[in-house]
Simulated assay, not measured.
Amino acid sequence: MLGRIKTYTKNLLKYMKSGGVVLIKFDKVSPGRRFEGRCVLVTGGSSGIGFETAREYLAEGAEVIITGRHDAALQEAKEKLSSDRLHTMVWDVSDVKSIPQKLQEATNLLAGKNIDIFINNAGVYVPENLDEYDERTYDSIMATNTKGLFFTCQAEKKYFINNGIKGRIVNVCSARGLIPGCDPYSISKWGAVCITKGLAHDLAKHGIIVNGVAPGIVLTNISDWSKKLNINDNAFTAAHPTARYTLVEEIAGMILYLSSDLGSNIVGEVVPVDGGWTLK
């Protein structure tokens, strides 16, 4: 009885603080070997969605390259993932002139093997009130989320076609790219959705499958506010009809599905994993 009272009191305090209490019990199915012998490149792979996606590919037998802007973060991720099939590479996708060189550097890491799957996950988010954004911030968001994605996809297209690879591309877009919004992040993610659908239409005839995933509110380190929240303590959010945040594992699971053989006839879709947010 005393334990129940303590639990009730704890949840009451959470409710008063956040407006609701949702606790998640998430059981992961034991991984198979769907990606054994495949090589995967994940941009923005040192943390959050990219890190979890890399972990899932490694668990299913793939050889994985993760990229990021900071070597220290990449080395920390490598230590956590602890796999001899994992490679790291410093790559800022907003530096579009370096993309061909970086793609060549990535293929060199694989010692003659081809990249089969590209996961374009690198992105930036700067939360501000609409009237507070300046030109520099706007340009920095667009440089990674839209311009960087465009030229990365352009290079990936050439890589697949020139090497005769019927590969997969999955772009991590956002639910913000599927609902109205005039802030720079939303605009950049509308662009990401457009790139994904246009590229999918262009490449399907080559046997190259392109799709996207549109996360809702996921607790990653993309912003200062999200770093402070503990999804294990309380996953409640009023923004999603399900009243809870989305887990990085759920995004990674959809990415793997779309890039697997089971997703080979899904073309140009941007799949929301958002607790119903985009249904509003």
Rank of each mutant, 00 (worst) to 15 (best):
K10Q: 11
G164W: 02
G207T: 03
V64W: 00
P184K: 02
G167E: 11
V90S: 07
V170C: 12
L199P: 05
E60A: 02
R168S: 05
I115C: 02
A214Q: 10
K28V: 00
A200M: 10
L178Q: 12
R85P: 04
G191I: 08
A239N: 05
A77N: 04
G268V: 03
V273Y: 07
K25Y: 09
A59T: 01
N145P: 12
F51N: 06
A62W: 02
D92R: 10
G263Q: 11
Y133M: 05
V90T: 14
I141R: 06
L110P: 11
G48W: 13
A200P: 12
N221H: 09
T53R: 09
F26D: 09
M142T: 04
K14Y: 11
N121E: 02
D71Q: 15
G253K: 02
E105M: 09
L23W: 02
I195K: 09
V270Y: 04
C39T: 14
I141H: 01
L262D: 14
K147L: 10
K80R: 14
T146P: 08
T146Y: 13
R55Y: 08
I165V: 10
T220R: 02
I115Y: 06
E60N: 08
N232P: 04
V210P: 01
I195E: 02
D261A: 12
L279G: 07
M89G: 05
T88L: 04
T88R: 04
T107Y: 09
K17P: 01
Q75I: 06
H87A: 00
G268Y: 06
W91T: 06
I99E: 04
T196I: 05
R244D: 00
G112H: 12
A111V: 11
V93Y: 03
I165W: 08
V248G: 00
S223C: 12
A175Y: 08
G212Q: 14
I65S: 06
L23C: 00
C182R: 14
N129M: 15
H240E: 01
C182P: 04
E132G: 00
D233W: 12
D202A: 11
G212E: 08
I49S: 00
K80W: 07
H87N: 05
P241M: 10
M89Y: 08
Q75R: 15
F35D: 01
L2M: 12
I169Y: 02
A200L: 14
N171K: 09
N120C: 09
K113R: 15
V193S: 01
L149T: 11
N230R: 10
L229N: 03
V40M: 01
